[in-house]
Write a protein that binds this DNA or RNA. Sequence first.
DNA 1: GCGTCCAGGTCTACC
DNA 2: GGTAGACCTGGACGC
Length: 319
Amino acid sequence: MVKLSKEITFEIEPIPPYSFELTIRKPAGWPLFTPLEIYDKGIIWTAAHIHGLLTGIKLESRGTTEQPKMAAALFLKNVPKQELLEGIMRCLIHDLAADEDLAEFYELARRDCILRHAVVDLYGMHSTSPSTIFPDAALAILLQMTTLKRSNEMMNCLIRRYGEVADFDGKKIPVWPLPKRIAKIEAPDLAKACNLGYRARHMANLAQKLTSEAFPSMEELERLEPEEAKRRLLELPGIGDYSADIINPHGGFPIDAWSADVFGRLFFGEEPKDRRKAIEGIKREGLRRWGKWSWMAFLYVVQDLEKLSMKLGMELRLE
DNA sequence: GCGTCCAGGTCTACC
DNA sequence: GGTAGACCTGGACGC
């Protein structure tokens, strides 16, 4: 447990449209920074490592989708130097996608027969992202070759057992462990502790690679060309095409066996007979159709399956 | 009960 | 360069 008693408050004014509720709490239940964060009556308490410091984060909307404004409070162990503090604030604003302009995507979406419905249903929803590579990479590994139920069990175990707990503002939030913590654990011990199976080897190797070598940070990956960022991500153990598309800060079109059903129906009118074999073709069609906005399109579709099913007259589901 | 199959991919050996 | 097979584990399914 790490007591974070130093509080710094500031205000964030996102680029409109920005829906606080849809962005912070995705309809499909995707968390902001950790699956164990707390959301209650329009306020979220979450935590993450930002610029190497465990940071408690409290956010509350003070505006509307058209005139968005957020009250933000950071909780830290000690008050950092001004330069570092400003870096943490900038990073949080970027992670919350408050600096993201949706205008170009919405222009494309309104001319697209699938997306035009989703952008109405989810007006003002943005794509948030973590500041570090490990949480998304670890999640991607835990999603491989198993059920969603077991993925969640493995993820919660990893966080509760090896992650720190941020204690601030009367809340206790467990966060993703740092790779340097996981790198010290032998793969068989990791497998036994959290029932990771063969994924433990990937997890241990991933943590070691991220700590022992000068691997680019998320910020540095974002400065690279999208293809180059993906090429670097594919160097990570246990990270293949699908996982790299989840992690890539430039976005990708991460089609797995389940989303192949959804996008197969949307693009070609039917679910593929062989999901794995169909992935490549579905991915190609998504990238052709939506280009650099493929990730945003993917996000809007998977977050809007229920309403899209009704509007398009087809059953779309992810499980 | 018990055996078999397969799941929100990736890696490796083999051709 | 392409591809089959292995990989932990546990729930679903058929018998």
